[in-house]
Amino acid sequence: MATITSPRKAAQPQTERSLATRNVIGKTLILIILGAWAVIVIFPMLWSIMTSFKTDQEIFFSPWALPKTPVWSNFSRAWTTARLGEYLLNTLLVIAPSLFLTLLLSAMASYVLARFEFRGRMLITYIFLIGMIFPLFLALVPLYFVMRTLHLLDTFPGLILVYVAFSLPFTIFFLTNFFRTLPKELGEAATIDGAGQYGIFFRIYLPLAKPGLITMGIFNFLGQWNQYILPNTLMITNDDQHTHYVLSQGLYYLQAKQFYQSDWSGLFAAVTIVMVPTLIVYIIFNDRIQRGMTAGAVKG
């Protein structure tokens, strides 16, 4: 609170020097706070990566020490036991279309909910809210029957549709507010220029919503990448080939296994393998958000 200065006072010349020192102190303080939090969040990440190079004994006997010699075999063991290679392809086949559809459909619905007044608008908002609250595992049995009736069990299109449907509430909820913050005048101007409703959406607002879409893209990517309850129930292959399993199921298998038969090092290696793509996706797209927002940033 000490940094609060009223605009008028700040403008007074005699305080300029003290303001400058204050600025330096303030900036240092900020760096310290940020640095402290950074340590808290980076440390576990580094620890988990480091741990995937250790032996089980090293993990439990000296959890904070560096590995004596990096154990690369953890990774190859994890790769084969959890069949990560096979499942990676399946996961990509599901997630790519499902992410695209999630973003497109959510953007459409959010745009309408944000920009137009019509009867039932609030009702629809609340109906979507239900999907964020009710515990998923209570509805698995009815969902299974829906999928069975539609012959979508153990199919990629089935899982894609389910992923999209379950991602909609959260995404729509966020994007509705996002569209609401976009200036109305642009649309009005375009209408005067003779653009149709669809054109306004696709050519003007959709590009403007990029930061929001990317943010939701990241969150949904993470959510769908790690989702295991849905595939666990809906992607049961009735033969041993397991051809439709996704990554999270392979990881889950390892996790269940190590509970009884400690292979912590293998588990950590598998988790690291599965985590790295999400990290890359975040780092790439984080810069996109950044580019979207520099316009609003202030050099202080």
Binding site: L140, V141, R148, I236, D240, Y252, A256, F259
Partner: peptide, 30 residues
């Protein structure tokens, strides 16, 4: 046919309800 699973209830509950359970199950684990 052998199929390995991790969460017996989550994965087999619908099949029991639908009246089409498997012929033999290892019902163990968390």
């Amino acid at each position: 046919k052998t199929q390995s699973i991790q969460k017996v209830q989550e994965q087999l509950q619908p099949r029991f309800v639908a009246g089409s359970p498997p012929d033999v199950i290892d019902d163990s684990g968390a």
